[in-house]
Simulated assay, not measured.
Amino acid sequence: MATFHHILFLTTLQVFCNIIQVYSSGPVYKPPPVERLTDRFSRLSFNQSYNVFFGGRNVHVTNNGTGADISLDKYSGSGLASKNKYYYGFFNAAIKLPDGFTSGIVVAYYLSNADVFPHNHDEIDIELLGHEKRRDWVLQTNIYGNGSVSTGREEKFYLWFDPTQDFHDYSILWNNHHIVFLVDNVPVREVIHSNAISSAYPSKPMSVYVTIWDGSKWATHGGKYPVNYKFAPFVASMGGIEMEGCILNQKDMAPSCSRSPYSLDPVDGEQFAKLSSQQITGLEWARRKHMFYSYCQDKSRYKVLPAECNAKQ
């Protein structure tokens, strides 16, 4: 009987260990269903949308002109900049991240006008930060308005998928009502345009950028885990290009809006002014399950939290 009990104990222990392994091997929960905003806008080719920003030899057009690979090696990173500047809109890129050891690498998808307004620029950031653990990328979001760079508004998330195995959509919705950051159409962050944040709310036309670069000095614990170029080149692949906004006319510097000619907001209307009930459910899920840092909770960084952190949005 002792032998039988011993075998039963070992069998039960093995089953328990298998269950633990399944639940600890990665995210268990899938996001709730949400509307697919990416289905509401047209896809663009690379040549329609981007120019090489820097590191030209590390940029390669792919898939018959619908996408591009950008890479980082020991000589240079690389990046793309949109042909047009946009005032409000919806912007998307489907990105597949480098795999393997990616500590210190930053792949950024963002809007900025620092080239035109170096001292009071606006910026809306999606930054994907390589990690010292294999394939454990971190998503960081941030905004600046009118040069408000002294107040970081970062929020960080763990992804619920392996971003190195396939393309995933990273999107920014920006209008007069709110800024929404989305991953595979799931909202992960909403910044409502309230009185509390109005002075720091991005308000000027911006270009769209996609870049890969060496962020060793800050991206992983203040440079503790720098980029290891033994594993270079690091290649990020991009497709799924969507840009729907009011395009700034370079001659008269006035926005031209094809979708809403009587409004400066091409993504206006009830469906874009506030999140739907499905999107709110998705937002709450992402923040509850996957957000691990918010500037509004960082009292060691701010003796007085930014005004919007205490305001009801």
Rank of each mutant, 00 (worst) to 15 (best):
G240L: 07
N228E: 11
W137C: 01
P163T: 07
D166Y: 11
V191P: 00
A219L: 05
E132Y: 14
F167V: 08
I192A: 14
V183K: 12
I143T: 13
N176G: 10
S216V: 12
V235Q: 12
N185G: 02
A236L: 07
G152H: 12
V180L: 04
R153N: 08
T141G: 07
V191A: 07
A236F: 10
L159K: 02
Y144P: 05
F234R: 02
E127W: 01
V210K: 10
W213L: 05
H168E: 01
W160L: 00
G145S: 05
N228G: 10
V227G: 07
D125Y: 01
F234I: 01
A196I: 03
G223Y: 10
D136R: 03
L182F: 13
I197M: 03
A196Q: 04
G240P: 14
M238R: 02
K133C: 07
M243D: 08
W160N: 11
L159W: 10
A232P: 12
V180G: 09
P205Q: 02
I124W: 01
F167A: 03
P163L: 09
V183F: 09
G240C: 06
E127K: 11
I172E: 02
R189G: 07
D166K: 14
S148H: 10
P233I: 04
F231K: 02
K204R: 14
A196L: 06
M206W: 08
T164D: 05
V227S: 06
G222Y: 01
E123M: 04
Y229M: 08
S203Y: 06
H177Q: 14
P202R: 02
A232F: 08
K133S: 10
F181N: 00
Y209L: 13
K204W: 00
D162Y: 01
S199C: 08
S207A: 14
K224I: 11
N175E: 09
I124C: 09
S237I: 06
Y158D: 10
H221P: 04
A232Q: 10
A196T: 00
M243I: 09
A236G: 05
V138H: 12
I192S: 08
H168L: 02
N142H: 09
K217A: 12
I192K: 11
S194G: 03
V183T: 13
S207W: 00
V235A: 09
I143C: 03
V183C: 05
F161V: 02
E154Y: 04
D162L: 00
W213V: 08
L129V: 05
Y225D: 15
H178N: 11
Y201Q: 10
W174D: 06
I179C: 13
V186R: 08
P187S: 06
E242R: 15
G130T: 02
E242P: 05
S203K: 14
I126Q: 15
K230H: 15
K204D: 04
T211G: 11
W218T: 00
S216A: 13
T164I: 01
N146I: 00
S207D: 11
A232S: 15
L173R: 07
Q165C: 07
R134V: 03
S198R: 15
K204E: 07
I192E: 04
T164K: 07
W213M: 11
N146C: 04
V191R: 02
D166C: 05
S194K: 09
G215R: 00
L139S: 10
T211A: 13
G240A: 12
D136L: 13
P187T: 03
H221A: 15
I179G: 07
S199L: 11
W174F: 06
W218F: 05
I212E: 12
Y209R: 13
F181S: 03
